[in-house]
Amino acid sequence: MNAAINLRRIGLPRLIVHLSVLLICILWLIPTIGILVTSLREPGQIASSGWWTAFTGAAETSAARLGEPSTARQDGPNFVISGSVFDGSQEGAKKGAVRAFGTKVAAPTEFTAGNPADIGDGETLTVNEDGSYVYSKNAPFSDKRGKRVYLSIAQPASFTLDNYRTVLTSQGIGQAFVNSLTVAIPATIIPILISAFAAYALSWMHFPGRAIIIAVVVGLIVVPLQMSLIPLLKMYNEIGAFFGIASRSYVGIWLAHAAFGMPLAIYLLRNYIAGLPKEVIESARVDGASDFEIFVRIVLPLSFPALASFSIFQFLWTWNDLLVAMVFLGTGKDQLVLTGALNALLGSMGGKWEILTASAFITIIVPIIVFFALQRYLVRGLLAGSVKGG
């Protein structure tokens, strides 16, 4: 009865919306959780089982070598070798509970642990869960070395930070992290400052051609950076040569990111600022405040949600950028940003999933912190900028 009353109070359409949003959030979080868990696992467990088994343990395939024929003892008509597959002196496997074993790499779970297995040629092998084994033959052993067996071993849940140590201690990663911050922070602040002034002018200052400028700004949003990257670089080199600015410097990448971020910033901020209460602006003008004073004391504090919304997008774009950074900074060890350094690292360790996932999580950890720090302003700023206009 109470559930029915609560359902009517919430409303079925609203409940469906809430459940849909919850489902979308879960679907977005699952890959991130998978990357984090995989980055903390050992290589053997990653290769043998999925990340969702990390907390319950996993079956890991391993190999071990039995005792040498010289250690065999005669037991009636049979010759017997015994020991433990976990004995390191015999190329032992990693310790755990043996679930199954086999004599072929393609079939490591052919026989169940604890049960005698007929492996042909009069040979019988029994491997118990604790790793002890009995290997017998109805004739003397002819092999020069101990027989190799393959094991399916249940490993308890375990995690390690070695993957992150490998990535963080690799040559150039620390400098690349600093380079990424040096690029992303100014490339986020510069377009916000310029766009805020422009958005105020396009919202509350009347001058000829204002409508044309607004239309041009909207049109520039659809221009892809890649299409104009080469002309932009050529122009920058010519201007830099004239003013004595180095062709490979942070100034170039700051200006490139700022130029391509400003159209969207001006569009969002202009719509938001134009929707601010007109009475507040006019009252300030009546009291003798200048446009600069109105902008600094009234508009900027009220526009913080819109500023935070754009800051998230701009920081994510600049932090994850690789192309612009390689073009304007170069590919030297002291010039690479984090995405470039990790890309080079993955080129040498591309088959190691533990390194791949640890590198990926290091790349996304800073954007995640920025997003959660400003996320409460994100939706408010975007919605306000999309429904208000002037």
Score class of each variant (00 low, 15 high):
R148L: 09
I221M: 14
G390S: 10
M349Q: 14
A284F: 02
Y236D: 07
I281Q: 15
T38K: 02
G120D: 07
K144G: 11
W353H: 03
S49G: 15
S311E: 08
P156Y: 12
L302N: 14
Y267G: 02
L161H: 00
L356Q: 09
C25W: 05
T112C: 02
A211E: 14
Y236G: 09
N2K: 15
I16Q: 03
I213R: 03
G44Y: 04
N179K: 06
K333N: 09
Q226A: 11
T112F: 07
Y164W: 10
L338V: 04
S348F: 13
A199K: 01
I214A: 05
N163S: 12
G172W: 00
I35T: 11
H257W: 03
V296K: 15
A47R: 14
F207R: 04
G146F: 00
A373P: 02
L15D: 01
S386N: 05
A241E: 12
A3Y: 02
I189S: 05
P108F: 04
G120V: 01
L302F: 09
G102R: 10
V286L: 01
P43R: 13
L268D: 10
L382E: 08
I33K: 08
L302R: 10
P277C: 10
E42V: 01
A246T: 13
S247A: 15
L22M: 10
V98H: 02
V366M: 13
I369T: 09
Y200H: 04
F260W: 09
P77H: 06
V251A: 11
S170D: 13
